[in-house]
């Protein structure tokens, strides 16, 4: 099977979707002729024409707001916000409009849009090129939130998101665009061509939204992770020798609660890992659900490893990013508790 980078897989997903459905349109800042600052839309304008893939003014609310209007018309826009850090001007349109259109109009109008946003840190992006704002979306009724961790999933999940009848926030960990990253910034990065999840089937396939994947079966402790943290958790398990079961959530909302509960009931322990800041982060929801659903099976308090409650710094990148050492400590503490 051909191997692709995550960028190539994402581009392939849009290519496949645009080829199958003339209602799919792709636009955003620098997305058209240039093919995107991360090359995710390279070649799409040449292949499908300027009316299907085009550049947008630098106006996030305009990009999302116009996409909502297009969706109300009957198109299926897949738009890009250049960095998740810049979605805030579109937050009104996303939370008050896209998320609620079906509900408030009782299905008279719907909003089948996908909003792609590169997310996450580990790239010396500083305060406004590293944020992980997923909790600001999972808190909103009416949105779906997806975070892929590899090329195979990225393609299948993005096609599923584009075909989904409701608005989907598609957060792409940019640290994973060219290869998996386990937090060991001092080691050379392995490209996706060397990784089995870099295998991306040609043509159309989907991965259902709302289904988690077990990346590493284990019996000692359940690790709930998504995006870059999946590889950090894998490294931490290897380095500590702890038999952790690592669950890649893939979709945060709707959440695969069954997979989480089955694993925690088996292991009796749970560590939640994310890059986003700790307080009121998505991890708090995960901990709460585990506590509610697995209380009598828990042998230790559920631990969280997250970004500190500070803006994402520049020079202190690796003191901030929750790397394998911090995750490993949490695994050990949870086993010893």
């Amino acid at each position: 099977m051909p191997r692709k980078t995550m960028i190539e897989a994402i581009r392939d997903a849009m290519d496949v979707s645009m080829g199958r459905d003339s209602k799919v349109v792709v636009y955003g800042e620098d997305v058209g002729f240039f093919g995107g600052v991360f090359r995710a839309t390279q070649g799409l304008q040449a292949k499908y024409g300027r009316s299907r893939c085009f550049d947008a003014p630098i106006n996030e609310s305009g990009i999302v707001g116009s996409a909502i209007g297009m969706a109300a018309y009957g198109l299926k826009p897949c738009v890009e916000i250049q960095f998740a850090d810049y979605m805030y001007p579109a937050y009104d349109q996303l939370t008050q409009e896209a998320a609620r259109l079906r509900y408030r109009s009782n299905g008279d109008f719907t909003c089948p849009i996908v909003v792609r946003m590169p997310t996450g840190g580990g790239i010396f992006g500083g305060q406004t090129h590293s944020q992980s704002p997923e909790a600001l979306f999972t808190h909103v009724s009416g949105l779906k939130t997806v975070v892929p961790s590899n090329p195979h999933d990225a393609k299948g999940l993005l096609i599923a998101a584009i075909e989904d009848p409701d608005p989907v926030i598609f957060l792409e960990p940019k640290r994973l665009y060219n290869g998996p990253f386990d937090g060991h910034h001092d080691r050379p990065v392995t490209p996706w061509s060397k990784h089995e999840l870099g295998e991306v089937a040609d043509g159309h396939y989907t991965i259902p939204l709302g289904k988690a994947a077990i990346r590493r079966p284990g019996s000692a402790v359940t690790v709930l992770a998504y995006g870059t943290m999946v590889y950090v958790a894998q490294a931490a398990a290897e380095e500590t020798g702890i038999d952790a079961e690592i669950i890649d959530l893939r979709t945060l909302l709707p959440l695969d609660l069954d997979a989480i509960v089955a694993s925690v009931k088996k292991t009796g322990r749970c560590v939640v890992v994310h890059e986003a800041t700790l307080t009121s982060g998505f991890g708090a929801e995960l901990v709460s659900l585990v506590q509610e659903n697995c209380f009598y099976h828990l042998e230790a308090p559920v631990a969280r490893v997250a970004g500190w409650d500070t803006p994402y710094p520049h020079a202190q990148e690796w003191d901030y990013f929750p790397g394998p050492a911090r995750v490993g400590r949490a695994l050990i503490e949870t086993l010893e508790a």
Binding site: V25, S51, R52, S61, G62, G65, S66, A67, I68, G69, M70, A72, Y73, G74, L75, P77, D92, Q93, Q96, E97, R100, L101, R104, S105, D108, F109
Partner: peptide
């Protein structure tokens, strides 16, 4: 569908019109 949030529909109308042209 009317929203309580002011002005949001103004850009949505433009998007609808863009879709019609597309």
């Amino acid at each position: 569908s009317i929203s309580g949030n002011l002005a949001t529909q103004y850009i949505q109308a433009v998007g609808w019109a863009m879709a019609s042209a597309i």
